[in-house]
Design a protein around this nucleic acid. Sequence first.
RNA 1: GGAGAGAUGGCAGAGUGGUCGAUUGCGGCGGUCUUGAAAACCGCUGUACCGCAAGGUACCGGGGGUUCGAAUCCCUCUCUCUCCGCCA
Length: 423
Amino acid sequence: MLTLQVLRNDRDALAQALAKRGIDAAPMLDRILSLDEERRHTQKEVDDLKAQQNAASREIGELFKSGKKDEAEQRRADMGALKEKIHALDEQQKALIEQQESALLELPNRPHDSVPAGQSDADNEVVSEEGARPELGDAAVPHWELADRYKLIDFEAGVKITGAGFPVYRGKGAKLQRALIQFFLDRADQAGYEEFIPPHLVNPDSARGTGQLPDKEGQMYHCADDDLYLIPTAEVPLTNLFRGNLLSAEELPVQLCGYTPCFRREAGSYGKDVRGLNRLHQFDKVEIVRFEKPENSYAALEGMVEHVRGLLRDLELPFRTLRLCGGDLGFTAALTFDLEVWSGAQGRWLEVSSVSNFETFQANRLHCRYRNSEGKPQLVHTLNGSALALPRIVAALLENHQTPEGIRIPAALQPYTGFTTIS
RNA sequence: GGAGAGAUGGCAGAGUGGUCGAUUGCGGCGGUCUUGAAAACCGCUGUACCGCAAGGUACCGGGGGUUCGAAUCCCUCUCUCUCCGCCA
């Protein structure tokens, strides 16, 4: 949620920045501003009346104490009208604040200056591309066939037990999952991220804190009996660890990581997008999260992207880095870099990581602040990134490293898998 | 699931109708002392909103109520803790 202050100070620039998302925010901004003006007016009025009331109450107390009972009773009788007026204005005030809050909640984050305008993923900017794509020729086999051939994943069993999008990993397929998780966590640890194992269900306050509610309600699985949501990403519980906290400057930066399964309903997806491991309802992911001082957050974002690149290099996968355009940028993000790996057999790019700076957008909802150099509480910047999401990594590993003899495991991963090939 | 206790400032913990935004301790900041540090001593130290300012208003888990006046009384919700039961 944007702060009212930004909106007040910077209405025009904000509207311009939001236009990069392809939305005309001006009417909404003006509505909020006029609500704000009305609220301030009402507050002035009600505050003055309350001041009157407080003064009168003090005087009545004095009168009672000094034994002037008659005068006190008289004053007391006169208070009724004032009380009613205050009550009515309080109600009005509350309604205004509510309207303003809900309007503010619907406003997406302000895109960073470097975000290109654009409608869809077609307008994303390719920042860099690395690694040679394999020469597989006509012999290229898609990962779902390889997974079946080497008995790594049983998609049908998942359908029977749960439904489509819930694969069952088996044998070396299961070991590969475990190896990747361990590899990613070790690398995050080496980079200074403290490991956490958070709950996999969160309450509505947490979902609101990171911005999943109200924006993405339909994307999450909801346990209605207990009003809890299955996490769509570890970002939600990890970031909410610091909800409501006031940090000292020395505590920053905070660097966290964690492995969790992730659950997404993915309503409306179909076709080649959901084939094999391309899009699942449950998948595994290691997430990295940072809380930063505002002046450091963009350097931190660079560092996180570089961390993810390091993982992809070690897995010997061809990949590219995208700067998301306004139209593709998530609701809560100010700047996002996506990392995509080349899927050798499918002949297309698969998103495996999304690294974002949310600036104060989440922190404002989370009420997560730190004491700045002047000793004043100030909103922190929050960032997070996948490092990494497993399914598409597995897809790319299978497809790009396939040989007539089997699947070649990259050297960096071999200490974790305990085997060098899958055959 | 049954019974009881509790929720107060960065943290700990007092406060049971009228200068209580709140005693005190710790922490933090500033100072005295010291070659320097520690200790000791002295002072300062909540947040948000309105206002150019002076100042005003709100906040003692959330919501509602009683009262001229509520951290304090009543109702309600949520959460936490203890004991019992069940259980990986």
